[in-house]
């Protein structure tokens, strides 16, 4: 496994989630989808940079950092949105459950990618700046 493999999978899941239509057209859904889109963009950017032989490590680490930070805020809004959907009974549980599975999987992938991020960051930056605390614990 490598950072590329983990990020490719995260990108695939993000794409799948973005392909789904807006379910409620509400602010929280818009916010989590915006974060998801930003994450997807920076996953692609990371994968492109990894292909380049002489990539700028700062540029690469910046893109990776945005992926992690987007993932973290996207969860906050997704969970809030999910709660409101459940409380108002607007979306079926099985639909929410399917979405949640994908969101959780992306987080797991990003957690598993941490050792690779650390090795890229070594000598350039404290990896703790790149990866939020709750992905490292």
């Amino acid at each position: 496994m490598s950072l590329r493999v983990h990020f490719q999978y995260v990108g695939k899941l993000a794409e799948e989630l973005l392909e789904e239509a807006d379910l409620t057209n509400t602010p929280l859904e818009y916010r989590y989808r915006t974060a998801l889109r930003e994450k997807e963009t920076h996953v692609r950017k990371t994968l492109d940079l990894l292909k380049q032989k002489n990539h700028d490590p700062d540029n690469l680490l910046n893109a990776i950092s945005i992926v992690y930070k987007s993932d973290e805020v996207e969860k906050l809004h997704f969970n809030g949105w999910k709660r409101l959907c459940q409380q108002n009974k607007t979306i079926k549980e099985e639909v929410l459950s399917k979405l949640e599975t994908k969101f959780s999987r992306m987080k797991t992938e990003l957690e598993e990618a941490v050792p690779y991020v650390k090795s890229i960051a070594k000598g350039h930056k404290d990896s703790r700046i790149i990866v939020p605390a709750l992905y490292r614990d």
Partner: peptide, 28 residues
């Protein structure tokens, strides 16, 4: 919009350097 913390590189690009920052104010 999302509350995602900006990175140092993103803030550096603004080059605020002592000036106040107008922020966009999208209504939701």
């Amino acid at each position: 919009i999302t509350g995602r913390p900006k990175t140092k590189a993103e803030f550096q690009q603004k080059n605020a350097d002592g000036r106040a920052i107008f922020q966009p104010t999208y209504y939701f």
